[in-house]
Design a protein around this nucleic acid. Sequence first.
DNA 1: ATAGGGTTAG
Length: 574
Amino acid sequence: MNTIKPSSPYIRPIPSMVLNALHCTQSKPNPSFSPKYPSILATNIIKSYFDKGVIKEARKLFDEMPDRDVVTWTAMITGYTSCNYESFAWNIFYEMLKEGVKPNAFTVSSVLKCCKGMKCYSCGALVHGLSVKHGLVGSIYVDNSLMDVYGYTHRGDGYGGLRAFQQMLSEGAEQSAFSFSIAVKACALTGASSHGGQLHATSVKYGLNSSLPVMNSIIDMYCWFQCLSEASQCFNEMPQKDIISWNTLISGYKRSNSTMCLSLFTSMESQGFTPNCFTFTSVVAACADLSILTCGQQIHANILRKGLDRNMAIGNSLIDMYAKCGSISDSRKIFELLSFKDLVSWTSMMIAYGVHGYGVESVKLFDEMVKSGIRPDRVVFMTVLSACSHAGLVNEGLMYFDSMKTEYNIIPDQDIYGCVVDLLGRAGKVEAAYELIQNMPVNPNDSVWGALLGSCKAHKLPNLGKLAAQFMLEAKPDMARTYLLLSNLYASEGEWKDFAKMRKLMKGLGGRKEPGCSWIELKNDVYSFAVGDKVGPQTERVYEVLSMMILHMEVAGYVPDIDYSLHEFEDGIS
DNA sequence: ATAGGGTTAG
């Protein structure tokens, strides 16, 4: 649990004797305490600070301690890890080694848990090596945590996990709720829904369907398989539900039906369950998905009343929600308020700036983040590259691309290449972008070709554009947009035969294209409208205002881009 | 002060 509660009401007052003991080492020596004693007390207090989620206080105490032994360092590593601050835990471990403190079995198993949380298996291997060097392998704790780091399911290898489970079954090993819930999780990871039903049936056979963790993981599995009715059925048939059962179903619905997610939240509260940080992150994300600001604000108020506003996961989802609801200043407020920011906090704020056109601010935030000691990952590099691209910071972007590979050992994937192609192409260096594609070590996918296609269109390079569009169609044949662009390219070149071919292919996709729409929130209701919609008695007035706005835009020099709207004309929507 | 199941955010 990483609940960060407001400090004062949750912390038991520290007895003055303890406080004296803490300070006596320097100012007034107290004969009743041996020099070691205060450090043990302080270590215990550090642990309890982490238990309450007041991380800053823990760190402050740690920084003030004059003598820190291996136990103190380990308490910091365990504490940070238990609050999901793995990168801080890792930094502490690094500092500890630098100061020459020798890790013991406790330290190593804590650090391994931290590696697992970071999903950083090279870090795990590093610690493995260190454990061998310090003769710590063979301790049951160290061995189990090593297995945990290297284990199948936690690494995302669902099939590996299931194979181990199958072996367990065939060897007749005793089954428990523990093994089952992990097996179900492994099955969810494979995405093979047929095994899911079997596993569910087997759990009934072993009488484990009364275990809350087992049933909760089964609900989660059905949600990942998009079998929402099966998930709901399991949920409804459970004689007893806990908060995790609700959270599992709510987060499942958030992924496929945000409206339903919100109504589940309402029934959860009406049945007397108190939402926690997990619930709120899903529900806030649902508001972000639906772009419903007032609802998001009401839930935010609920969060404030429960004193959960300093929780990092909730804060991160609030940043995203306010940005997606158009209220970037609120995103920034939440971001500033977070006493602890992790990689996701920074990335969310950077994306918020990016989508609102503040590329420079986004890039600045990236530098600040790195300076604060957080190690960037693939996602945040995508964010900073796209920010550079939109702000026209080509050289800076290329520099980040380079440091990603050389400084952070992140191997660029297709999406990253897509960002760099976009960076170059947007700035008019379309040839350089094409050259990059030809030299990239992985096969270019639709995001790469799409970026090139976009820049060919913007900089009017029909020939390269046609090439990009053809590759794009190979990679992703169901994009009506690509056919449209390609057909327009053919039309501009007078290649009517190819034009007709594209139009025909495009029509075949007709039913699959989702119509675009806009919406506005007015007095607790959301009104959505598509091109050409009639919006009640006020329709005429709305269109009057619209034509006036278009006139203003044209006076200001706006030239409409009709490449994408042609399709709508043909469908007769417009 | 140490490991072991299910739910969260970019």
